[in-house]
Amino acid sequence: MTLKIVVTGAAGFIGFHVSKRLLKEGYTVIGIDNINDYYDVNLKKGAFRAT
């Protein structure tokens, strides 16, 4: 059974890298982010495409 982990802020800098590492380690990652416009929205959407 694979452990499922929820990462909040998954499209942000830290959340993206944590999620990427967890995926590499074999975990199932459920990423949550509200994609607000405080930072460039295109950067956040790009983070989701990269995984």
Rank of each mutant, 00 (worst) to 15 (best):
Y39V: 09
A10L: 07
N36C: 11
K20T: 05
L22Y: 02
L23C: 05
I32L: 15
H17F: 13
K24H: 11
I35W: 13
G26H: 03
I14S: 09
V41A: 09
I14F: 12
D33Y: 12
T2S: 06
E25I: 00
S19D: 04
G31L: 03
K24A: 12
S19I: 02
Y39D: 07
A10Y: 02
Y38L: 10
G46V: 00
L43R: 07
D33P: 01
T51H: 14
I32T: 13
K45C: 07
Y27T: 10
T51C: 06
G31F: 03
Y38T: 04
T8L: 15
K4E: 08
M1D: 10
T51M: 12
R21H: 10
Y39I: 05
G15N: 11
D37Y: 01
G26E: 02
L23F: 01
V6W: 01
G12A: 12
S19M: 05
A47V: 04
N36E: 11
I5F: 03
M1E: 08
K4S: 13
K24D: 13
M1N: 05
T28R: 04
V29M: 04
F16T: 11
N34D: 15
I5S: 06
N36P: 01
V29C: 05
V29T: 09
I35K: 11
I35S: 01
V6C: 14
K24W: 05
K45G: 04
G46C: 06
L23Q: 09
H17R: 10
V41H: 04
I32H: 05
A10R: 05
Y27P: 11
I14H: 10
K45V: 09
I14M: 14
I35M: 15
A47R: 03
A11Q: 08
E25P: 04
T8Q: 10
A47M: 12
T2K: 08
L3M: 10
A11H: 05
F13E: 07
I5D: 04
K44G: 06
I32S: 02
N34Q: 13
